[in-house]
Amino acid sequence: MKTSARIAVQLFKYLGASIAGTLVHYSLLIILIRSLSLKPLWASTSGAIAGAMVIYVLNYFVTFQSTRGHISASSRFFFIAAICTAVNGWVLNFAMTQMNLPLAPAQVFATGAQFSVGFAVHRGWTF
């Protein structure tokens, strides 16, 4: 398969893994706010961590079909995930406090901010 076609397939699978992880992220975000009255930043961060675990497994086995050992791949993945989680929190906070966006659009904005960077880094370095 040509490199460009392979990248397109990986991008599509990465999108699917990201959607699955985002569903976990947003679901936990809503549950933690409604059930435990957590502040949006903490609920979102908790959801992002849970979503990252789902995304790691799907990307390791499905998207990139990695042959890298789990210790190496997972440490790289979660290093980048930690950076992306911090970016998520920063963008969410900025969007809510400086742009005066409500939670839902602010969270969508924060999620979109990390998608393409995550794909490029994970494709080129993590897996």
Rank of each mutant, 00 (worst) to 15 (best):
F115N: 03
I49S: 03
K13L: 10
Q107H: 09
N93M: 09
L29F: 15
I33A: 02
A106D: 06
V117L: 15
M96Q: 14
P40G: 06
L28F: 14
T97L: 10
T22C: 09
T111W: 09
Y14T: 00
V121T: 05
G51P: 04
G118R: 10
A8V: 09
N100M: 12
S27G: 15
I49L: 14
T63C: 07
S66G: 04
A104N: 10
A113P: 00
Q98M: 10
L23W: 10
N59A: 05
V54F: 06
A43H: 08
M96E: 12
N59T: 01
T22E: 01
A50C: 14
I49F: 15
I33C: 03
Y26I: 14
G21E: 03
F12V: 12
A8E: 04
V87Q: 06
F77H: 00
I19H: 05
F79K: 00
I19G: 11
P102K: 12
Y60D: 08
I30Q: 08
F78A: 02
L38I: 07
L11H: 03
A106S: 14
N88S: 08
A106W: 11
V24C: 11
T97A: 08
T45F: 11
F119K: 01
T67N: 11
Y56E: 04
L41S: 02
S74R: 04
A81K: 04
N100H: 15
A52N: 09
M96W: 13
G47E: 05
H70I: 08
I55T: 14
Y26R: 06
Q10H: 10
L23P: 00
M96F: 10
A50V: 05
T97G: 01
V54P: 09
W90N: 05
A43G: 13
S18E: 03
V57D: 01
V62W: 15
Q10N: 07
A120L: 15
A20L: 12
R34K: 14
A52S: 15
S75W: 10
H25M: 05
L23Q: 02
N100C: 10
V24N: 01
T97Y: 03
S27R: 07
A110D: 07
I80Y: 12
F109D: 02
N59H: 06
T85E: 01
A17W: 09
F77K: 00
Q107M: 10
A104W: 12
R68L: 11
S46Y: 08
L23R: 02
N93Y: 13
I19K: 03
M53K: 02
R76V: 04
M53D: 02
R123W: 09
T111I: 15
K13M: 04
A106F: 09
A86W: 13
I19F: 12
L38T: 04
F61D: 03
F77R: 00
I80R: 01
L41C: 01
L36K: 03
